[in-house]
Design a protein around this nucleic acid. Structure first.
Lengths: 167, 167
DNA sequence: TGACAACTTGCAACACTATAACATGTGTCG
DNA sequence: CGACACATGTTATAGTGTTGCAAGTTGTCA
């Protein structure tokens, strides 16, 4: 109980196509259930975000979109991002101005992220102990919690073990 | 043990001049100790940040600076902010692109903030329990923690009790 | 004192991040 | 079909932060 990793750090050899396909399938399902449309653009942006297991920046996504859709402009990508955030399909990493896929969109959860400063990998936690401790501390001060942004910087297991190879 | 509020929510009637003066005096002391210079610009930016008990944006600070120093430009304020961040005299609130004074610069501490969505007030925590729980959860996953960004959104005691007065 | 190094500020331009406003297209349902 | 809601196209602009180099300031030490 307590720790519940939603999106763990990925090894280089995991079946990534499968991993992305799964995420897209979950997204389709989620949108159907909620009666909203996962249009071609939205789906493509979500796929681009999932394709790398690291936070993606809006203008990088825009560049990729533009390669295949001449009309893409900032609003194109920001609208898609807003939609995906709204549906809980992605998260925004405040400290990086970047976006990552959410591994578990159908369940309500707080944003708790471990961010590797060396390889940019991100793991998403959904830890009830952390949530509880923070909430109870806040309430001791009379503060009513609505949402939490937790971003932990450091080194992921791989980079921790080999921190000097390419940095 | 555990909870240790560094900068609590302020009441409207606290002695604010005194509160700002204290912060500036602590800053002078801290800079002297560290052998760095709290120049006029840096000191003024710090004062502007302290004068309101809410996060201040870089370009708002710039406008205020310009009113009294014709030559002020973006680098002027960003350099001052970088210096103050470096010395631990202020913190950056990632989710707001804004900056707040640090109530306790001489002691190492993590950034844990309660942010009122209604009145923008910010309280800074320095809670070892929260730190411990997060660090141990991260280390269970083999992640080595360097720094934590924790930003809790919600309602401060005053706005919680009277949430409909001016919102 | 004066010359040098290190630090700080001035200044212009630019890069990156995000939104506004309005027009046009598309899909659904009576 | 026609009306409506939703989605996208398009242009412009707002907001946030950085680069690079010139000029000024401060402290140090022979």
């Amino acid at each position: 109980m307590g720790t519940n990793v939603v999106t763990p750090f990925k090894h280089a050899d995991h079946d990534h196509d499968h991993c992305v396909d799964d995420a897209l399938a979950r997204a389709e399902q989620q949108c159907t259930k909620n009666g909203v449309r996962l249009t071609a653009i939205r789906r493509r942006v979500l796929e681009l975000i999932w394709r790398r297991h690291e936070p993606m920046k809006a203008y990088d996504l825009l560049d990729m979109l533009r390669a295949e859709r001449r009309s893409a402009a900032p609003p194109t990508v920001y609208r898609a991002l807003d939609f995906l955030l709204e549906e809980g399909l992605i998260h925004r990493i405040e400290s990086l101005n970047a976006y990552v896929g959410c591994g578990d969109p159908h369940r309500p959860h707080v944003g708790q992220f471990l961010i590797c400063q060396h390889c940019n990998a991100v793991a998403e936690l959904n830890d009830s102990d952390v949530y509880q401790v923070l909430t109870s501390k806040a309430e001791e001060l009379g503060f009513q919690v609505n949402s939490q942004t937790i971003e932990i910087n450091g080194l992921c297991p791989a980079c921790r073990d080999a921190p000097r190879i390419n940095g």
